[in-house]
């Protein structure tokens, strides 16, 4: 009873234990799990977060050998970015990178899903497993060997050249044609990775309740209808997550394979943002500040794409990364 007002006060219920002790208790309960993720956290911090510090050079007039932060640091603001936007290579680089990524995505994203659904629908599990092994094997071929194989087939002295010579025809190496670079790059990448990428969908499909298939059989669904109405919806959350991640990395194509396949003959289409960054930052007279600015710009595009993809997915489906 409040003496001043004469009203009854509701008793304040004390929570069992204060928040600090509750946190300590939670920490103790979860200690084994926290310990298990500790190595991953350390690796991510060392190799993903710590190097972010180096991004600062994108805003500096930086020369190899300079300290990133010192009294002599010359800050240039967005000059390096402006230089890239005004670089005559800007639009060709953006176009090449975008086209190779978008075509790679259009072919490479649905292919593993189709393969996973097909392998899962096969009656003979033995055949399915064998095919899966065959499809996965190319993933373990190194990029250098893969490009070597492409040379053996499509190079100036390759198989196609020999066949053409045998029939008295002429043959120009596909590595010397601008128009051949993208198909060769995209198809070989997909050949190498579709089996590997399908594994995640095959794993998701293995969780589909077999009774749902049986119910569909009794409902009168054909094998194809079961794939459409049972399997595909079951892996839809996984497809959404993979789609968001793929869109997030759409402009993040690596430089290694493009460099290995690059010749003077295909430079107009094979010069990508990543190869340009490599060349600017590590070859000739290195301009690391400029290379860092280009790389950062590319990463910003990827982050924006990731956010857009995630927001869209969240709005139109129940799946999102966060």
């Amino acid at each position: 009873m409040d003496a001043a007002t004469g009203t009854l006060k509701a008793p304040v219920l004390k929570k069992p234990g204060n928040s600090a002790s509750r946190r300590l208790r939670n920490f103790k309960e979860n200690a084994p799990f926290l310990l298990m993720i500790l190595p991953a956290v350390v690796v991510v911090f060392l190799f993903c977060y710590l190097p972010i510090y180096g991004v600062l050079i994108a805003f500096q007039d930086f020369m190899p050998g300079d300290e990133i932060l010192s009294e002599n640091t010359i800050w240039v603001g967005f000059d390096n970015f402006t230089r890239f936007f005004n670089d005559p290579q800007f639009w060709p680089l953006m176009k090449n990178t975008f086209l190779i990524c978008i075509f790679g995505f259009i072919i490479g994203f649905p292919l593993p899903i189709l393969i996973a659904l097909t392998l899962n629908a096969l009656k003979s599990k033995k055949v399915g497993k064998s095919l899966q092994t065959i499809f996965t094997a190319p993933h373990f071929i190194s990029l250098v060997v893969l490009v070597g194989m492409l040379q053996l087939f499509f190079g100036s002295d390759g198989l196609l050249a020999s066949i053409a010579a045998h029939f008295g025809g002429s043959y120009k190496s596909l590595f010397l044609k601008d128009s051949a670079f993208r198909p060769l790059y995209i198809l070989s990448s997909n050949w190498q990775d579709f089996g590997w990428s399908a594994i995640i969908y095959i794993a998701a499909l293995s969780n589909v309740d077999p009774q749902q298939h049986e119910a569909a059989i009794l409902d009168g669904a054909s094998r194809f209808q079961r794939v459409i109405h049972v399997d595909l919806p079951a892996i839809m959350p996984m497809i959404s997550v993979m789609l968001i991640m793929s869109i997030g990395g759409l402009m993040g194509v690596g430089y290694e394979k493009a460099l290995l396949m690059q010749t003077d003959g295909n430079l107009h289409t094979s010069e990508l943002v990543s190869t340009y960054v490599y060349k600017q930052g590590l070859t000739g007279i290195p301009d690391q500040a400029y290379a860092a600015a280009i790389g950062l710009f590319n990463s910003v595009i990827n982050v924006v794409l990731l956010i857009i993809a995630n927001t869209t997915s969240k709005k139109f489906s129940e799946n999102s990364l966060w």
Partner: peptide, 19 residues
């Protein structure tokens, strides 16, 4: 074929299509 036997079945774990 099961669909032509004119039968219907109720399963232990319901087997409803979740989507």
């Amino acid at each position: 074929a099961p669909k032509d036997r004119d039968i219907a079945m109720v399963f232990q774990n319901y087997a409803l299509y979740p989507h």
